[in-house]
Nucleic acid binder design. Structure first.
Lengths: 179, 179
DNA sequence: CAGATTAGTCAACATGACTGACATAAATTC
DNA sequence: GAATTTATGTCAGTCATGTTGACTAATCTG
């Protein structure tokens, strides 16, 4: 089994840090796959996918969210959102109520079933994050947070910080449940 | 615009850490989206997608990789891999050569065009990682690495560590270029 | 009232996953 | 040497989730 030594081609002079950075890139890929894998399994039992998870999550965190807010956060088209949102409404995980001050708006809320599923999924991901932090030094959390935020690029960063800030309840609604 | 104070429903007593953990979960989502967005734009100019990127990346890092190795790393079916791999071969970004000791194997290598594209994509992601590390404390890198590795779960962790370890050249080949 | 905004819908399409079945060549085992 | 296993490739169909473009309906605002 001949394993010739690797000979760096001329001009391929590499930064000694390079390998460490590349392994971070690969870790991000593998970590993200693990991160989504467990919830995906649970969602599949309900006939849902990752797209449903995202909607459940953000409605759970920000009850009373408008459809337009969700489109902003998820950066998908309204047609893509409409498909999964309709399924979540039809199957009783989300309700829509008209906004109090602007009745064109559809404020989104989780039903008890929706809350239960969202919490279950969140619990899985929280446990994984806790494990990961425990695997690092105890003071890793702020470093990880700064790193992830730094991944986002100055343009988007403020918007993301606004989204991840601890949510308050949004505008009250007219109470009229749609459909 | 009435904004009633959020009233925690009875029994929803939350861990004060909870919000910090949830925001890490959301940051992971946003950071990963940013992380893949820039390469996706470049790939689209070639008519390629994220699946092609993964193949290019791992063949770049581990020249001489077998198809079976790639399936192990990516955890997709051979039918899924075959589609993107065929496109990369047909368009001259990857060549396959029979293994020297086992001629059933198709060892994968990048052509010069493949190397150029892989390096371009890698450069974008390295720059982003460097920015993110610069945004955190200088000593954040090991903490981030430990965190991401901790996300992976003890079962898979060893396999991932083997993949991300600095690659050596793999087995020499018969030199016969396939197709 | 006119125009802008919020939301929903219909139709068609692309990507990248999946399953299941089968084919071929080469290596390994009996 | 024949039979089996292994590595790879291929055909066919399905599904989830994204896209564009065009259009409707209700409601708010100047």
């Amino acid at each position: 089994m001949p394993v010739p030594a690797r000979r760096a081609p001329a001009g391929e002079r590499v930064d000694p840090n390079q390998d460490a950075l590349v392994s971070l890139i690969e870790l991000l890929f593998f970590a993200y796959r693990e991160f989504t894998g467990e919830p995906d399994t649970v969602l599949a039992q309900f006939g849902f996918g990752r797209a449903h998870h995202r909607v459940l999550h953000f409605v759970h965190r920000r009850p009373g969210l408008r459809v337009a807010d969700l489109l902003d956060i998820l950066k998908i088209t309204k047609q893509s959102l409409a498909r999964v949102l309709k399924q979540l409404v039809d199957r009783g995980f989300i309700v829509q109520r008209a906004g109090a001050s602007d009745r064109r708006e559809r404020r989104l809320f989780l039903t008890p079933a929706g809350t239960q599923l969202a919490q279950k999924l969140l619990g899985l991901q929280i446990a994984r994050i806790e494990d990961a932090l425990a695997h690092a030094e105890p003071e890793a959390a702020p470093a990880v947070r700064a790193f992830l935020l730094g991944m986002i690029g100055p343009q988007e960063r403020a918007a993301v910080e606004a989204v991840i800030a601890a949510p308050r309840a949004l505008e009250a609604t007219s109470g009229k449940v749609q459909r």
